[in-house]
Design a binder for these strands. Sequence first.
DNA 1: CGATACAGTACCAATTTAGTGCTGTATGGC
DNA 2: GCCATACAGCACTAAATTGGTACTGTATCG
Lengths: 165, 165
Amino acid sequence: MIRMSKLTDYGIVLMTRLAEHSQAGENCSARDLARETGLPLPVVSKILKLLSKNRLLKSQRGANGGYSLARSATDISVSEVIGAMEGPIAVTECMDTPGDCRQEPVCPVRHNWRKINNAISSVLDAITVADMLEPLPDSLVTLTGLEIPLDGSKLTGGSASSLTA
Amino acid sequence: MIRMSKLTDYGIVLMTRLAEHSQAGENCSARDLARETGLPLPVVSKILKLLSKNRLLKSQRGANGGYSLARSATDISVSEVIGAMEGPIAVTECMDTPGDCRQEPVCPVRHNWRKINNAISSVLDAITVADMLEPLPDSLVTLTGLEIPLDGSKLTGGSASSLTA
DNA sequence: CGATACAGTACCAATTTAGTGCTGTATGGC
DNA sequence: GCCATACAGCACTAAATTGGTACTGTATCG
């Protein structure tokens, strides 16, 4: 399903909450965020520590301590948050662990996966935490250099019937 | 890492191999494909059964039987193959299992994930199995309706520094 | 009628993921 | 100084997923 992990999903949510609070100058504790989101405190804590270690959050210890964004929300991409939570975006295993797949040298599709991977990365790179706070445009991408299929025959699932997202 | 499963990856490879053979009119057995790809036969078998059950492959039993594409390779999208292997593309859990996340009604980012999800789907929808056999264009997508970040500061990982893939 | 090859299902082991617990250390207020 | 607060860093467990196997059944060709 090309899924990100639940924790990463939470991570994005927490980042957006922090973006709201940070612009008011407040820093808020793991406890606050846990209460706000309804997620268990240990989980929130774990995520915030991770984001902090990867320099996306600033942390302040002690009484009245807490977390706040390390940079402006308009300057932190969704891609970075995902990267901090689970490593660089890699749709196939050979993207971030090359050499593991025995047939890599003769694999007919690997180079194309790299391009697809980069296309997805570029979308996630361009969307910032701040963007997530308000509705994104309906149409995020236009395809280039591909023949767009003429008939709708293969558009089975819930996927886009036009190129609008 | 927004990863698809290994089996799905194999599935795409097998589909492209079958595309090559199908255009020559041959149908080939699981054993043949296992030998060609170096993957264990039971694995190849399992994948082909799945793709067959989902009507992407035609199967022929008996001596000289085997598999072939159910449709032209130019008419089967990568998105469909992924869908057959692991269900519809869903970057977050709430995309294909709504109602599971307790805070769905108030989730500030869910609608945006849907748009991102659709953007990714549309890319994978437009790329066919036939496309995977030859190099894709370097630039697969252009972003629309988003402000492209001006500084390269946040482009840390291996991700695209321009919009080319 | 027998060898070939797919269909279906059940199963197992290894990894990954989600979530918890505990110990340590910095900070601020009384 | 002392204590409560709150982050840092591990180590750990349990559940779910994944990758891979085995076995039985059925269709088809020669």
